[in-house]
Every structure is written in C-alpha cells, then in structure tokens.
Write a protein that binds this DNA or RNA. Structure first.
Length: 616
DNA sequence: TTAGGGTTAG
C-alpha cells in the first residue's frame, strides 16, 4: 500500500478498492499481499489512463508489475507501450521491446507503429527489416504502418513498391486497410495511375477508401483530381460525410474557387453535417484563402463554439490578406477572453507582423512565447524562420543572421531559406551564399531554394554562377515549377501559363493586353525587367514579361467576369515586380478590384493601390 | 492484441 500510494494519485485509490473480485489480473506484489485482492483489467487500465501523461508514474507502475513476479497480460503490455508511444518516449518503448524474450508479431507491429507515429520512418523500416531477418512473419496489421513509413521515405524511392511486393507475397493485397495505405503511398509518390488502379480494383470500396483517396490527392497538390473524385463519389451514390467535405473544401481553398466551395458547403447542409466544427473551420479557411475576408469574418462571428483552430485560421487568414491589424487585434481578443492559444496561433501572429514589416511587434510576441511557462508554445523552428523572414524582409539582414547564430536549436532549411529569400530581395550576395551553402547540405532537392539562388546570382549579373546552379539542378533532376495563374469563372477553372496561347480566347486576350499596355504606357508605365532572370537582351526581356501568366489571367477575367464582381487570380509562385505594377494600373484604368493570391500572400488592388503597400 | 480518411502554419 505504501508503495502504491506513492505512485498512484489518491483519487484513484478508491477505484482500486472498489473493483470487483474478477481475477483477470492478479497483483501479488508485496504492496497488496495483506489484502490479497484481485484486480480487473478495467481497473488496471483506469490506473494506466490516470497516469498516461506522466512517464515517471508509468515507469513506476511498470516496475511494480515486474516485481510482482506475475506474467503481464498482452493487453496490458500493449496498453503500456501505447502510452509511451503517445508520449513520444520511443527510447523507453525500444528498451522494453529489447528486454522481451521472442516478442510476438503484434509486439513488432506495435513497435513499428510507434516509430511511424513519432515521425521516425527510417527506424520503422529498419525494424521491419529485422523482423524479416529473424523470420517473424508479418501480418495484415504490420503492413499499414510499414507502407506509411515507406511513403515518408522519398529518398528511398524503391521502398514503397518493395513493400507492395511483400503485400502481394503474403497474399493480403485485398485487405481494405492495406490497400488504402498503398493508394495513399502511391499518390505521395506521384503515381496517381497506380493509386487509381488499386482503388478501382478494390473489393470493398467503402467511404473511408473514397475519403483516403480524396484526401491524399488534396494534400499532395492534386486538387483537381480530388474534386473530380469527390464528384464521382456523388455520382456513384456514395454519400459524403464530414471528412469528404473537409477535404473538398480544403481543395477549394487551395485552388481559390469559393463558388465551388459554397456549392460543396450546400451539400454539407443537405446531409445535415454543417454544424461540425471541422467543416466550419474548413469553410472559414477556404474563404480566407479566396480573399473573402468580410464574408469569412461574418461566418466566424456566427460560429457558436469556435475552437483554437477557428481563431488561428482567422488570424493567419488576416495575415495573408495583409490585414495585420485585424490579425493582431483578434489575437488580443483571444488573450483577453482567456482562450487557449497554440504554436500555430503564434505562427499566424508572427506572419502578420512579417507581412507588414512590424519588427518591434514581432519581437514582442516572440519574447512573449520565449518567456511563457507553457512548454507547448515555446518557439519552434518555424517561429525562428518567421522571425528571420520578418527581420530579413525588413532589410535587417545582419540582425537576422545573428539571430540564427543565437538559436538554441539547430536551424533547419526553413530558417536558412528565409534568410536566402531576404538576401535575394535586398541583393546581399555574401550572406546569400552562406545561406545557400547551408541549404545545399540540408535540402539539396528543394527546387524553390535552387531557383532563389539562381535568381540571386542573376540579379547580381553573375551568369557564371547561374549556369552552375542550373547545371546542378539538371544533374540532380530538380525541376523548376512552371509558373501559372488561374481564374474561376462559372464554376470552372481557367489556367494560364507564361506566353501561353492554348486558351480558346487567346486571340482576343492578347489583343486586349496589347491595348492595355499601350494605354498604361501613355500614363507613365514602363516595364520592370529586373525579375527576368535570363541572360537575354532588353527587348526579349520585355517580351517575356509582357505575357506573364497573371497578365493573361487578369485580361481573361476583365473580358469574362461581370463588372459587379472583383477579379480573382491565383498564382502558384510569387508575383513579380512588373506584374504588380501592371495590376495597379489595370485596377485604376478599369475601375475593377483585383484580388490576387500569390504563393504566400494576397494583393488586393484598388484604384491603383495595393493592400501590401508594395512591401512583399 | 495491434490496422485505413478530415481543419490552422510551413
């Protein structure tokens, strides 16, 4: 009793004393001998649950169970391991596992699951390999996790297909859970055809399989495929649930098609699931990502029980729309109402500061986080990256660099990438090269960093270095993302690439574009060719820049979208200097509002002025 | 005795 009272909170003592005499599990430890009680499985589970967030107590319970001299039931052992997995203490899980004599398959499965759930896919794959070497036969419970691990190992491209081969070897490729994981894995690898084949040939194609496929597409840049699947699902008579709707809404946010998004929300109403907070949050986010700030605000105020995600969504939404004041005042409201915040909330707050160049405010929030007693909101790598972005974008490059050097945690590619981005804007070749050097080590395959480097050298006129970077990209097979812009019109998305003439209205678009540029030139516009990073003459630079995708998209919208509606353009990369000026002129000439979302933020153009105040 | 799908940021 003495020992127990030390490790078990007193309030659970009564639970222990009240349990019925069901001999599911017997404690014969010294602590209980004088009472000779038998405990039920439920009681032990209650006990474990009560301590499940305290590794110290859990470890003591485990020690007590061992000294009791009794064999521990499998259910209890799994529960115990699961507690440590949830706590992220994989070292202890591994220690327990290694102490076991000939662990059975389900324990191997638990260990693999632990590594996967704690973002250690390499370890998971390693354990699977060892399992094979020792001749332990994997089962249908092993593979969902092994496949998931393989999908997280893009550096071993063959791992996923190899796992698939094993699945076939063991004859479990038609087990729904296993097949679903395979589908998700192939989508991540970009093999949509294979994923589709697995889906179409599934024996039990249930709602979860549909949702898994839709979500996998939605989360891996195949938004159009996700929407097509969502529609196909409806036409085959499978009714969507909250999960399907959330994925579909998220796609509409990514693609910037809020008309389609509202259509999807109407389905939620028809199905009677519109009061689900996750669906409501997805709708808020969708509107924020489409630039519908006022409507999203109205919806937000009407949500009866918003959670931390609703608030964070709004804060980040205001931030990307350039409404930093609204973002910061909403955060103050959260604080004054005593609402819980989390690390994502702070990312929104810092990004609001960054988009508006509010350096001293940014420092204030960052220090607030650092001083917090709550461990969960101590600054993480992402917050450091935000601060580097804020300082760097404001031209304080040295301060940003010193900030990185003072970091208590190892800076990652996000942090160095933020510095590199700032160096490109402020043309600091020296620091930029330093950042580039680190990025070659940390993220050699990320195209956007290589493009930044190449652009930095190009604007400094160092074409020899530009050539080097491009050669390295070719050698590594790193491909630059082609720039495109899109416009939603009558529920359909129209895509435009630079210099693209494939759109059926191309002729009239180019004609109108020509007229506009002439008119703008008479008003003082001259093209800014500083963002053409090719070693070509001025005339060619002007020609490249005059048919950038966003210009084509804007003109398309001018021709087609009714004058009572704003022009909405989504761009997959950042807007260039010239297109920014162009958009300001167009908003002035045509008296139309142009809402353009680039890769990281919105630009709302009205009467020749942009909401970003030319700071982006 | 362990298994598949969803929202905020980056």
């Amino acid at each position: 009793m003495l020992i127990l009272s030390k490790i078990i909170p007193t309030k659970f003592f009564s639970t222990l004393q009240l349990v019925p005499f069901l001999p599911t599990l017997k404690f014969s430890s010294h602590a209980l001998t004088n009472r000779q009680k038998f405990l039920t499985k439920e009681a032990v589970n209650t006990l474990l649950k009560s301590c499940s967030s305290n590794p110290y107590q859990l470890k003591q319970i485990h020690a007590l169970l061992l000294t009791s001299g009794l064999s521990i039931k499998n259910s209890l052992l799994t529960h115990l391991l699961t507690c440590f997995i949830v706590l992220g203490d994989m070292l202890y899980v591994r220690q327990l596992f290694d102490e076991m004599h000939k662990p059975r398959t389900f324990l191997w499965n638990t260990l693999i699951r632990g590594y996967v759930q704690n973002d250690q896919p390499k370890e998971a794959a390693f354990i699977y390999k060892r399992m094979n070497l020792l001749g332990v036969r994997p089962d249908s419970f092993t593979f969902p996790f092994v496949i998931k691990a393989c999908a997280e190992l893009p550096e071993f491209k063959a791992a996923g297909p190899a796992a698939h081969a094993q699945v076939v070897k063991y004859g479990i490729e038609f087990v729904a859970v296993v097949r679903t994981e395979l589908m998700i894995m192939y989508v991540k690898l970009g093999e949509l055809g294979l994923a589709d084949f697995l889906f179409k040939t599934m024996v039990e194609r249930d709602l979860v399989a549909w949702n898994a496929f839709i979500a996998a597409c939605a989360q891996n840049g195949y938004g159009m495929n996700a929407l097509a699947l969502f529609r196909e699902m409806g036409s085959t008579g499978t009714r969507p649930d909250a999960v399907s709707l959330v994925s579909a809404l998220s796609v509409c946010g990514q693609l910037g098609c809020s008309d389609t998004g509202e259509e999807i929300y109407r389905i939620a109403r028809e199905e009677g699931i519109e009061c689900n907070i996750i669906v409501e949050n997805a709708r808020l986010d969708m509107h924020m990502k489409c630039g519908n700030i006022d409507f999203a605000t109205e919806l937000f105020e009407k949500i009866p029980c918003g959670n931390v995600i609703s608030w964070s969504t709004m804060i980040s939404g205001y931030a990307i729309n350039g409404e930093s004041e609204k973002a910061l005042s909403l955060f103050s409201r959260m604080q004054s109402e005593g609402l819980r915040t989390n690390y994502v909330t702070y990312l929104g707050v810092l990004s609001a500061c960054s988009h508006a160049g509010l350096v001293s405010q940014g420092w204030r929030y960052f220090n607030l986080m650092s001083r917090s007693d709550d461990e969960s909101i101590k600054p993480r790598k992402e917050h450091y990256a935000c601060m580097v972005d804020l300082l760097g974008r404001s031209g304080r490059l040295e301060e940003a660099y010193n900030f990185i050097r003072s970091m208590p945690i190892e800076p990652d590619s996000g942090v160095w990438g933020a510095l590199l981005g700032a160096c490109v804007i402020h043309q600091n070749l020296e620091l930029g090269q330093l950042a580039a050097h680190c990025l070659y080590e940390l993220a050699p395959d990320v195209a956007s960093y290589q493009v930044l480097m190449s652009n930095m050298y190009a604007s400094a006129g160092r074409w020899d270095f530009v050539k080097k970077v491009r050669q390295r990209m070719r050698k590594k097979g790193v491909r630059k993302l082609a720039a495109y812009s899109s416009v939603e019109h009558n529920g359909e998305l129209h895509f435009f690439y630079g210099g693209d003439r494939s759109h059926p209205q191309s002729e009239i678009i180019y004609e109108k574009l020509d007229c506009l540029i002439k008119q703008m030139k008479s008003m003082g516009y001259s093209s800014k060719t500083n963002s053409v990073f090719h070693d070509v003459d001025l005339e060619e630079k002007e020609s490249i820049i005059s048919t950038h995708s966003e210009k084509l998209a804007i003109v398309f919208a001018l021709i087609n979208v009714g004058p009572d509606r704003p022009i909405r353009v989504i761009k997959n990369l950042r807007i260039c200097d010239d297109c920014h000026t162009f958009s300001k002129f167009v908003s002035q000439i045509s008296l139309r509002e142009i809402i353009m979302r680039d890769k990281i933020r919105f630009h709302h153009f009205r009467n020749g002025v942009c909401s970003c105040k030319d700071f982006w």
